[in-house]
Computed example of a mutant assay.
Amino acid sequence: MHPRDLELLVTQMMPYGKYQDRLLADLPGPYLAWFAREGFPKGQLGQLLAIMYELDHNNLRMLLDPLRKKT
């Protein structure tokens, strides 16, 4: 993981699916857990979703708050 990945979580939108056009940082926990069970997409999106899942699962979403204020 790179520090830039955390910035992408608060700026990049989900490109498809039920939560299309929602910030990755705002995706609900059950949706992220579904990806964790079924498999994350390939590439950068999958890596970012996996990071967001770990943050959500470990109750660390608040770590993104300072980055939200920067953008």
Rank of each mutant, 00 (worst) to 15 (best):
L24E: 00
W34H: 11
P3F: 11
L24Y: 00
K42G: 03
Q44K: 15
G17S: 14
E38R: 15
P15L: 12
N59A: 11
A36N: 11
R37M: 06
L49A: 02
K42M: 06
Y53I: 02
Q44Y: 07
D21T: 07
M14Q: 07
L32E: 00
K70E: 14
E54M: 10
R4T: 04
F40C: 02
L23Y: 09
Q20H: 11
Q44R: 15
H57E: 15
K69V: 07
V10Y: 03
W34E: 13
G43Q: 11
K42D: 07
F35N: 11
D65C: 02
L63S: 14
R37E: 04
L49I: 11
L32Y: 00
P30V: 11
Y53M: 03
R4G: 03
K18L: 10
G39I: 05
A25G: 02
G46Y: 05
H2E: 13
L45R: 00
L55Q: 06
Y16D: 13
L60F: 04
Q12D: 10
K69L: 08
M14T: 03
M13Y: 08
D21F: 03
F35K: 05
L49N: 02
D56I: 05
L45I: 04
G46I: 12
P28T: 12
P41S: 02
V10A: 03
A33D: 14
K42L: 07
H57N: 12
R68G: 10
F35I: 04
F40V: 01
L27N: 09
G46T: 08
L60R: 10
Q47W: 05
L67N: 07
L60Y: 01
M13V: 04
Y16S: 14
M62Y: 14
